[in-house]
Amino acid sequence: MDVKKYPLKVTLHKFGEMIYFSQLDLVKILERALRRAQLPLYFTQGYSPRVKLSFSNGLKLGVEGRIGVTFYFTENILLESLLEKLARQLPQGLEIITEPLE
């Protein structure tokens, strides 16, 4: 029973207090925000399923900047609907911006 996965790529702006959180922390922060937003998450298959997420680049601790993030859903989610649901679940210092990462 292969679940279909729909990737959605966004750009995340990390600033303010959030610059002190590592990329590893960010995985959990985003996972929990997605769960609160009740989006149809795609989980990795296997014995201990995880929310699938991928980053296109990393940022050092203490640095403000942008990161490309790909979310995976089990349905096709439009960017506007993601923005609407996820934005208010993100802590101050994380923002999804629509323009692509250069």
Partner: peptide, 8 residues
């Protein structure tokens, strides 16, 4: 708590 936290 799950709804307000999203804790896994």
């Amino acid at each position: 708590i799950y709804e307000t936290s999203g804790y896994e």
